[in-house]
Design a protein around this nucleic acid. Structure first.
Lengths: 211, 211
DNA sequence: ATAAGAAAATGACCATGGTCAATTTTTCTA
DNA sequence: TAGAAAAATTGACCATGGTCATTTTCTTAT
């Protein structure tokens, strides 16, 4: 690839990479799996925050350089793992009946909220990766956020909370208030209240104003 | 101090530290000022992101250890400098007449928004420090966020946007939507729209529902 | 003015994420 | 199947933030 692609411009290169569907070697898949498994193990034993590349690489039995051949940086692996967890919660939600009230909606969000605030480190990382840096490469977390908003939109359309604004705007608002409630959870000035107790009033005021 | 305080418990120690107002030496003030000035210079020449402790220490003419004797870590200095900028914008706003419409309110927020999104690094740092980790030590940025919400509350009370919910809730909502608009600014999927164009509809829907 | 004790400054050292030229393994082609 | 090309792996090395025992400077009591 190196020689061939030296002659191509960036655009063609990306095109080729995307189209050719380059059939990874078995070895590649195995090494990658070992790295991910090692990381998951470390996380299970301690925490997301405590994960060290050295430790992962040691357990996976690879050299450090191999780690970075598979993942752009440490955060990329974290994003992968955290994104997968987020996806699991979301699939659960997607398979569940649409909530019929603001209270039910708030309640439905709690498992997701609890995971996102399980560690300060996790929440910070999620925030940092919640926007796709480039349209071409939408990471797992940005992708998941997109799905979240789409699901909320479905909910909003099913229950007809407000008719003065579109479902998409309502949905984005739900998301904004969710993040706000999570952020204040880490603030010593506010954390007397639970996340649910903070999110509830926000969503009520947003989705059913005047009622 | 070391010997004396060895005998005191934690609480008394903090009490003493706070009450005694320990009269810093001239040297201390000067060194600290040199460090801050050096950091500001680096930032002015390149960016917040590009600031390196080594470089700051070199320009300030101190040893590296001195930096960390004055600031808990690199972020602490960044928080100080960014917090000061935020305060400047806020003072400007506080001295300005309260906006009388959602449009005017949105417009008033733009300078603050523009600074907060001037660098990805800046926005991430602000988010990370927007909550006070402990009630005893509210950092400059958490402090500033508190002032922001207080100012919004004043605005909301002055203009009577909604009467179905309290001024404080309305104010927190403004803040939540501001953050949301800023966050999407860094997302390639959304950034066709300007911050103003994203924030405007949010605030209209939040502050004047049904109108 | 001086000695003792507190505060400040120092820089060698460490922890950890990340790079890259060289090497090994796999795949492809004639 | 040989050998060339591509892909994967390696580990010494680097960049940068952060620590801490030691040294220097300052303050204070006598």
């Amino acid at each position: 690839m190196t020689l061939v692609n030296k002659k191509l411009d960036q655009g063609q290169f990306f095109l080729q990479k995307r189209i050719v569907a380059k059939a990874l070697q078995k070895r590649t898949i195995e090494t990658r799996a070992r790295l991910v498994a090692a990381a998951e193990a470390v996380i299970a034993e301690s925490s997301f925050e405590a994960m060290r590349v050295e430790e992962v690489v040691l357990r996976a039995g690879t050299a450090k350089g191999t780690f970075f051949a598979h993942f752009k940086d440490k955060d990329a692996l974290m994003e992968l793992i955290i994104g997968a967890r987020l996806d699991a919660y979301l699939e659960e939600l997607e398979a569940t009946p649409d909530p019929q009230s603001v209270e039910a909606l708030t309640e439905a969000l709690m498992p997701l909220c609890n995971f996102m605030t399980s560690e300060r480190y996790v929440f910070d990382l999620i925030l940092r990766y919640s926007g796709a840096a480039a349209v071409e490469v939408i990471g797992p977390i940005a992708m998941n956020f997109g799905r979240q908003v789409a699901l909320f939109e479905r909910w909003v359309m099913a229950t007809q909370f407000r008719d003065d604004i579109g479902a998409n705007l309502q949905s984005e608002g739900i998301h904004a208030f969710m993040i706000q409630a999570l952020a204040t959870h880490f603030c010593a000035l506010h954390n007397a209240q639970s996340i649910r107790d903070r999110l509830g009033p926000y969503l009520k005021a947003w989705l059913t104003p005047g009622r």
